[in-house]
Amino acid sequence: MLTRRRFLESIALGSAAAGLGTLPAFAEDYPTKGIELVVSYGAGGGTDLVARAFADQAKKHLPQAIGVVNKTGGSGAIGFSDVMIARPDGYKIGMGTVELTMLPHMGLARFTIDDFTPICRLNAEPAAITVKDDAPWKTIEEFLDYAKANPGKVRIGNSGTGAIWHIAMAALATKLGTEFNHIPYEGANPAVTALLGGHIEAVGVSPPEVSSQVLAGKLRMLAVVGDKRAKGFDNVPTLKEKGIDLSVYTWRGIVVPKKVPQPIVDILRKAAKATADEPGFKEALEKMNLTWAYADGPEFRKQMEHDNAFFKETMTRLGIAK
């Protein structure tokens, strides 16, 4: 029998969880039914592929299957919002991407990173500066010198205004004390196409997005905007090696709504770690040219907080933040 007080309590809890009597019964039983993994970007894209590879490999480490659901639109805001407002019972989890730390500053989202509990990071890619094979710049120094001497002349393609690679290159311009002519495209692919056609001077997208063209000798990667050199491009220096302290990463990982109880978070973290360590998962990422970059929840949270502050500052300076 419920006492009146406990009844009221459970109503209060229940309304927070949007439904009475459906509270996660006992966390130690979790999961007792299928888990929904919300992907905020389209089926077949990079984020979706990581999610599907993860869901596939997680079968071995969770008693219930993870189903991938794509909720696209609003530059990702729709899917992220869907995760944010989900009942915090651990049955709706989300693929969190770097946009979680960017959209809130652009006035495009009602959430902030504090609405999510990070489970783990799965993948991360740095920015890179790539030019055409017949471009006059053979090294990053030559390129940067030219950019400094000719402010506003260098046209750099990015994956959209306010998107990660735009911010990365804008931050670079600030570091150099120069200006680029940023050309936004509908994603990284069209930007690379424009570079191949010689319509722009450089692109600032990640190494996997240009790797096939670089290996074929059509494009030349001059530098990686990360903490260490990119796998497969060991001869390409990082900007840090050249004395420019800048590193910008895009990342993908698993997040859950803030209110998910700690026991469930722990179960998910354990399962996610085991899944990320599966050879099958690493192999899937490798096939997609993506870099495996597992990081546990607390470490992942640090990166989210760091990036959140970085983007807020950079975007405000660029006048993109609202």
């Binding site: 506003g152 002519n181 940023h182 660029l318 993109i320």
Partner: peptide, 10 residues
């Protein structure tokens, strides 16, 4: 008419 400028010169 009240849409903000994109902040890009061109």
């Amino acid at each position: 008419k009240d849409f903000p400028s994109t902040g890009q010169r061109t």
